[in-house]
Amino acid sequence: MSLRIYGNRQLKTLPGQNTRPTPARVREAVFNIWQGDIRGCRWLDLCSGSGAMGAEALCRGASVVVGIEQLGKACATVRQNWQQVAKPEQQFQVLRGDVVKRLLALKGQQFDRIYFDPPYASDLYEPVLQIVARDRLLAPDGEFAVERDPKREMVAEPPELELIREKVYGNTAVRFYRWASAEG
């Protein structure tokens, strides 16, 4: 299976639903919301899947893209997709492993944009939100988007992060967070 991203570029995906790609209209909406903030940013792609979100960020001028994905075959696909679209001055890295454990290794780094698209039925939401807030992985003026099933109740969010908007696109909802006013 393949999918298309910004600039009509074609990416590879794995067969089946193990790495459910973010729907095209959701990708487009997220990048429309963040359109003035991608060029030169540091992007963190959590539960990368096919790498479509990180590839879009690279195509739109992100300077650094880091992805975390658990499945080995998916990591190879992400690497291949990002290599295909990255310019020589852009950096990217794909980290294989459990997203919670790999996030802990990123302590001390900050990202301008973080996109988190876990398996919707997973129990990853709360620990990932907590680690991003506790370890200050989000840059002071950054935003953090969390993709989820709109029918599923959202977990308790850390008080350091403020929900600034939520958009629903059919079977996909995206919540956008930034630092709460006093945290920035």
Rank of each mutant, 00 (worst) to 15 (best):
G67I: 13
F116Q: 01
F116D: 04
Q110F: 05
R60W: 10
I38D: 05
L106W: 08
L44Y: 03
V64T: 13
L103V: 03
D45V: 13
D45M: 10
N18A: 15
G72K: 15
F116E: 02
L71C: 08
A74Q: 09
R39E: 15
F31Q: 06
Y115A: 03
E28C: 04
G51H: 10
S50G: 04
A55E: 11
P21M: 02
V65Y: 05
A62C: 07
I68G: 10
G16T: 02
Q93M: 12
C59K: 02
Q35M: 12
N32K: 04
S50Y: 00
C59D: 11
A52K: 12
E89W: 07
A105C: 05
Q80L: 14
I68K: 05
V64M: 10
V94M: 07
F111I: 01
Q110C: 03
K73C: 03
T77Y: 01
D45L: 04
P21Y: 12
E69N: 09
P21R: 01
P119M: 11
P15Q: 13
F92P: 02
V100G: 07
A24Y: 09
A105F: 03
Q83I: 01
F116L: 15
P23Y: 07
L14A: 11
G40I: 14
L103H: 14
L11H: 14
G72D: 06
A24P: 06
Q70R: 14
D112Q: 12
I38M: 12
S50H: 00
R42I: 03
P118D: 10
A62W: 13
G108Y: 04
Q84A: 13
G97Q: 04
R60V: 05
A86Y: 03
G61W: 04
Q10L: 13
L14C: 05
N81M: 04
G16A: 10
I68N: 08
N32H: 04
A86R: 11
L14W: 00
T22K: 03
Q83W: 05
V99I: 08
R96N: 01
R20T: 14
F31H: 03
Q10K: 15
K107C: 00
Q84F: 11
C47H: 09
P15K: 14
D37Q: 15
R60H: 09
P119D: 06
A76I: 06
Y115F: 15
I114S: 08
W34D: 06
Q93C: 12
P118T: 09
E89K: 12
D117H: 04
L44K: 05
K12L: 14
V78M: 09
A55Q: 08
T22H: 11
Q84I: 07
A86V: 03
V26T: 15
K87F: 10
K107A: 13
A74M: 12
C59Y: 00
L104M: 10
V65L: 06
P23I: 02
L103G: 07
T22R: 02
R20I: 15
R113W: 01
Q35S: 14
A86E: 08
I33L: 12
K12Q: 15
P119T: 14
A76V: 12
Q70W: 13
T19P: 02
L44I: 08
P15S: 10
R102V: 15
A76Q: 15
Q91Y: 11
Q93D: 12
R20V: 13
